[in-house]
Computed example of a mutant assay.
Amino acid sequence: MTTAKKRRGFSDKDLREVSDSPELTKADFAKAKPFAEVFPDLSASIRRGRGPNKAPTKKQVSLRLSPEVIRHFKKGGKGWQSRIDETLRKVVRRKAS
C-alpha cells in the first residue's frame, strides 16, 4: 500500500483505526437494493439534469477539423469550441456584407 500511502497521506493502520464498518458478505450484497429504489425522489432529482433547451440557439453537428486548428484553439484554454464558433460567425458576416 505504499502508493496509496503516498497519494492519500494515511496508512493501512490509520484506515483500520477509523473504520468501524463491518466487511460486507455475499448475503449483504444479495439484500442490497438499487439507489433509485431506496431513494426514488432523490434519484429523480439527481437525474433530472439540465433538460432540453426551450429555444435552442445552436445546432449540434459532427465536424472534422485538422489537428493544427484544434491545437490553435485549445491552447487558449476552456471555451475553445465557442471560439471556433465565433471565428466562423465573423467569416460568415464578413462574406455576407
Rank of each mutant, 00 (worst) to 15 (best):
P52S: 05
K5D: 11
T87A: 15
F35M: 02
E23W: 01
V61G: 04
K26A: 11
P22Y: 01
L15P: 08
A30D: 12
R47V: 13
R48V: 05
S66R: 09
S43R: 02
T25Q: 01
L15G: 14
P52R: 09
E68C: 03
T2Q: 09
S45G: 00
K78W: 07
R64W: 00
F29T: 15
G77A: 09
R83F: 01
N53P: 00
V91F: 00
D14S: 09
K33N: 02
P34E: 10
P52N: 03
K75Q: 15
S21G: 13
V92G: 12
D28N: 08
F73W: 02
A36T: 05
T3S: 15
K90N: 10
P34M: 10
L65C: 13
D85F: 07
S82A: 14
P56R: 09
P34L: 06
S62W: 00
T2F: 08
G76N: 10
D28P: 05
S43I: 02
K6P: 02
P34W: 06
K75H: 06
P34V: 06
R71F: 01
I70S: 04
K78L: 07
R64H: 12
A4W: 15
R50G: 00
T2N: 10
I46D: 00
D85I: 02
V69S: 11
F29L: 14
R48L: 08
S66Q: 13
W80Y: 11
S45W: 09
T3W: 15
L24W: 03
M1D: 12
R89Q: 13
R83I: 08
K6I: 13
D12W: 05
K6R: 15
L42Q: 10
R48Q: 13
A96C: 03
K59I: 15
Q60I: 14
D41T: 00
E68T: 03
P22C: 11
L65P: 11
K33C: 02
S45H: 07
V91W: 00
D20R: 12
K59R: 12
S82M: 07
D12E: 14
D85Q: 10
E86F: 01
D41H: 00
E23N: 06
K90C: 11
D85K: 08
P52M: 06
S43G: 03
K31R: 12
G79R: 03
D28T: 08
E68K: 04
E23P: 10
K6S: 01
K5Q: 15
S45R: 12
K78C: 01
L42E: 06
L15H: 14
K31Y: 02
P34F: 06
L65H: 08
A30S: 07
K33R: 14
P67Q: 06
F35W: 02
L65K: 07
V18P: 04
D28K: 04
G77Q: 07
D85Y: 07
D14F: 06
I46W: 04
T87H: 06
V38I: 11
S45V: 08
S82F: 04
L63V: 06
M1Y: 07
F10K: 03
T57S: 11
R16S: 14
G9L: 13
K78S: 01
A44C: 05
V18R: 15
G49R: 10
T3V: 09
G76F: 00
E23C: 08
K90T: 04
E86R: 10
K54P: 00
G49D: 04
R16D: 13
S82V: 11
T3H: 15
D12H: 11
S62M: 03
